[in-house]
C-alpha cells in the first residue's frame, strides 16, 4: 500500500500520462499493427499478419531513394542550423539586455506564424518567376531562371528557416549555464577570440547542439508541410510518400509500414548520435 506522499507524483503526472496514452501511444500501436496487415486492390485491407509490406519497401530501390533523400535533407538542414544557430546564440547571449530581448523576438518570431504560411512565402521567393530569380535576371547575373522551387535545396532552405529557432533556444539554454569567466580565463592565458570560441565556448555548447540537432533532425526527417509545398509531386520525401499511400493509393498497411520504418530509423540515428556526443564531451554533461 502506498502512502499518500508517494502517490502525489503519480497523481500530478496522471493527466499528461492519459493524454500521452490516448493521443500518442494508442495510435502508434495501431499503426504498428496495421503495418503487418495486407492490402489488395479489390479486397481492401485484410486482417492477416505478414511481413509483406516491409519486404516490399526494403526490396524496392524507389523507397531507398526516398529514404536517402529524406535523411540527406534532414542532415543538411541540421548542419546548417548548427552552423548558423550556434554563433547566433552566442552573439545573442553577449548582447546588452535590451538589444537581446529584441533580437530574441526576431529569432523566435517565425514560430508565431504557421508553417504553411511561411512555406508559401518561400515558394513566392524561390519560384521561376519568383523574387530571387527576377532580381538576379534584372541584375544580369543570370539569363534564364535558376530552378529552386521543387528541388531538395529549396526544401532545405525553408526547413532551416523553420527549424533554426529550436537550435538557438537549445544552444542558448546550454550556454546560459556556462561560467562566462572561463572565457576571460582563456583570454588571460593568451587565447585569441577565435580560439576562445572554438576551444572554450563550443565544447560547452555541445549539450545544446546535441539536443538542438536531435530536435531539428527528427522534425526535419518527418516534416510534411514544407516538402509537400516546396517539393511538389516529384521531390518526394518519406512523409509525403506515407501521405500518398494513405490518401491516394489507399494502401494503408504499406503507408503504415513506411511510417514505422521512418520512426525506427530516426530513433536509431538519434540514439547513436546521442551516445557519440555524450562520450566525446563527458565533462560538460551533468
Amino acid at each position: 500500500m502506498k502512502s499518500p506522499q508517494n502517490m502525489k507524483p503519480w497523481l500530478l503526472s496522471g493527466p499528461a500520462f492519459v493524454l500521452f496514452l490516448v493521443l500518442l501511444l494508442i495510435p502508434l500501436v495501431m499503426t504498428f499493427m496495421l503495418s503487418f496487415n495486407s492490402f489488395s486492390f479489390y479486397g481492401g485491407i485484410e486482417d492477416v499478419y505478414t511481413f509483406g509490406n516491409y519486404i516490399e519497401v526494403l526490396g524496392d530501390s524507389y523507397f531507398y531513394e526516398i529514404f536517402l533523400r529524406t535523411f540527406l535533407i534532414a542532415l543538411i538542414t541540421t548542419v546548417f542550423c548548427v552552423l548558423l544557430g550556434v554563433p547566433e546564440a552566442y552573439i545573442l547571449l553577449r548582447m546588452r539586455p535590451l538589444a537581446r530581448s529584441i533580437m530574441l523576438l526576431v529569432v523566435l518570431g517565425p514560430l508565431l506564424i504557421s508553417v504553411v504560411v511561411r512555406t508559401l512565402g518561400w515558394a513566392i521567393l524561390l519560384g521561376n518567376n519568383g523574387v530571387i530569380n527576377e532580381l538576379l535576371q534584372s541584375l544580369g547575373l543570370i539569363t534564364s531562371p535558376v530552378k529552386m522551387l521543387y528541388t531538395s535545396g529549396g526544401i532545405v532552405a525553408a526547413l532551416v528557416h523553420v527549424m533554426i529557432p529550436f537550435m538557438i533556444i537549445a544552444v542558448w539554454a546550454a550556454l546560459q549555464r556556462r561560467d562566462p569567466s572561463a572565457e576571460q580565463a582563456a583570454e588571460s592565458l593568451g587565447a585569441s577570440p577565435v580560439k576562445v570560441f572554438t576551444r572554450i565556448v563550443l565544447p560547452q555548447a555541445m549539450p545544446g547542439i546535441l539536443s538542438g540537432s536531435l530536435i531539428v533532425f527528427s522534425l526535419s526527417a518527418s516534416a510534411f508541410a514544407t516538402p509537400a509545398i516546396l517539393g511538389g509531386r516529384r521531390v518526394k520525401v518519406v512523409s509525403t510518400t506515407v501521405y500518398d499511400e494513405f490518401l491516394n493509393t489507399l494502401n494503408w498497411p504499406l503507408g503504415a509500414a513506411i511510417a514505422v520504418l521512418l520512426l525506427a530509423s530516426v530513433l536509431v540515428i538519434m540514439l547513436s548520435w546521442n551516445r557519440l556526443i555524450e562520450k566525446r564531451y563527458t565533462g560538460v554533461f551533468e
Binding site: D179, A182, G190, M206, V284
Partner: peptide, 17 residues
C-alpha cells in the same frame, strides 16, 4: 590576452570539458 598575467577567478573558471 597579451598582458601575460595569471588570474584566479572567484568562481575558478576552470574549463569543464
Amino acid at each position: 590576452r597579451k598582458r601575460g598575467l595569471g588570474i584566479v577567478f572567484q568562481t575558478y573558471a576552470l574549463f569543464p570539458h
